[in-house]
Nucleic acid binder design. Structure first.
Length: 215
DNA sequence: GTTCCGATTTTCT
DNA sequence: GAAAATCGGAACA
């Protein structure tokens, strides 16, 4: 049980908030180590938070599933900037997705937050989703942004200095599982989805191949 | 329990 | 004009 994610920024136990250096690394590593950390959203004086239980890594030109695959555009420019910022985009006409940027400046990378386990402000979160069960309040990328009140106004937010959105280190290592990423057509061979094994709060995702027989 | 399909907007070709 | 890092409801077993 001694093996698992380590959090370099916690080495001295000084600050609970993850620092710039945590994000400025190889994206899949950041995605894995974000599991167990606490995503915090502050609205006015109200604090909403949840433990990150599911993530996916997206990189640049070598990753066909990434928004940054075809180069820099106005939408994805945050992925190319300084690590430790929020990349929020609107998709499918309904949903926002929250990513945290990674890699050093100039190198595109981001971690998609797919699910959290509600911790603070649970009643607010389930009320927004019209549910009673906290386990389903934030078990998908579009669901958690709705529960936490995250939209494109937070695109580009600096997670190191922001008072509205940031991440705090977890209390310790968690059991990690991996799988192919969800909802993409290309790049499925890379197992860059990470989740907390055994957690009830992860999204189910879709089995990439149910009955296909590839020779 | 699982699988299929439509809704609706932004973004890019 | 087409596709998209999704969700929720309907249909079926």
């Amino acid at each position: 049980m001694a093996t698992g994610a380590r959090h370099p920024t916690l080495a001295m136990g000084d600050t609970p908030r993850l620092g710039r250096r945590f994000y400025a690394r190889y994206t899949p590593t950041v995605a894995r180590e974000l599991l167990g950390c606490l995503l915090v959203r502050v609205e006015g004086k109200k604090r909403l938070s949840g433990i990150i239980v599911e993530t996916e890594a997206y990189r640049g030109s070598g990753d066909p599933a990434s928004h940054a695959y075809s180069g820099k555009t106005r939408r994805n420019e945050v992925m190319f900037g300084e690590p430790g910022h929020a990349y929020v985009y609107f998709t499918y006409g309904f949903h926002h997705c929250l990513n945290l940027t990674t890699e050093r400046e100039g190198i595109p990378g981001a971690v998609l937050i797919r699910a959290v386990e509600p911790v603070e402000g649970v009643e607010t979160m389930i009320a927004r989703r019209g549910l009673e069960d906290a386990a389903r309040a934030a078990d998908g990328p579009g669901k958690l942004t709705q529960a936490l009140g995250i939209d494109r106004r937070l695109n580009g937010e600096d997670l190191i200095s922001s008072k509205r959105l940031f991440v705090e280190a977890g209390s310790g290592p968690v059991p990690v599982g991996t799988s192919a990423r969800v909802g993409i057509k290309l790049g499925v061979d890379r197992r860059w989805r990470y989740y907390v094994k055994g957690s009830r709060f992860v999204s189910r995702g879709r089995p990439a191949v149910a009955h296909s027989q590839n020779p």
